[in-house]
Design a binder for these strands. Structure first.
Lengths: 123, 123
DNA sequence: CGGTATCCGTTGTGATACTG
DNA sequence: CAGTATCACAACGGATACCG
């Protein structure tokens, strides 16, 4: 399980570094992952207030802020219904849904973290 | 390609969110991904000065800082050789090497980003 | 309901100078 | 060579108040 390096060419590797780095920046922020997960679970549009209710501990400001960023990056889609009591719904775009495998790999890694913690090669 | 949601149970999903969120925190920081990539490419120990040279734009302070954090999280291993001209080498631990698949999935996703950008479901 | 605006403390990042 | 120390600044995150 030690042969998982993504690529070996120095040139390719630099481009890879930049790409992955940018990818991570899109997911940075304390609540983005949680938001994406909630949207994954919803399997459809979700209202702002519902997100706010289901994400324990988040403030309106942060929720809005991260939601906007996610929208900017094309991961979520925001739909505004011009009604008397304003209604806004958020949902994952195709790009957002495509994050599934990556998230999954990350989760598998964190599980591995726990297993390895006691076996680390401590130089 | 829209059926990649990691799980569906609300309870499971919350745990998943927490796990993934913590995973991302370990990789947060402007230079960590780049460092990990350089280490992947090296396929072995790498000196501090070599990392500094290969990672364009990083300052000593940031390199040290992120390297320390990565070490704390058990992703890299630091080896100090008590010589007259100090020599320190860094290398990926098993846990660090295990990041390969996750990094790869993230890279694939960023590539998909470019492809989808023009096809987004614009509600 | 679904935001926006403002203030504030904390953390991350960077430039520069210095050291064992 | 491989750090450490210090200063400065921007971004992040949170609380509160106000608005369409």
């Amino acid at each position: 399980m030690a042969e998982n390096r993504p690529c070996r060419d120095p040139k390719e590797q630099h481009a890879w570094a930049t790409t992955a780095s940018e990818a991570l920046r899109v997911l940075e922020g304390k609540w983005k992952i949680v938001i994406i997960v909630q949207l994954f679970a919803a399997e459809g549009p979700m209202r702002f207030s519902e997100l706010e209710r289901r994400i324990e501990g988040v403030t309106q400001k942060m929720l809005i802020q991260q939601l906007r960023a996610l929208e900017e990056d094309g991961i979520v889609i925001r739909t505004l219904y011009p009604q008397v009591p304003p209604k806004v719904e958020y949902e994952l775009s195709e790009l957002g849904k495509a994050l599934g495998p990556a998230m999954d790999a990350l989760v598998k890694w964190t599980k591995l973290r726990g297993e390895i913690s006691a076996v680390r090669t401590d130089a």
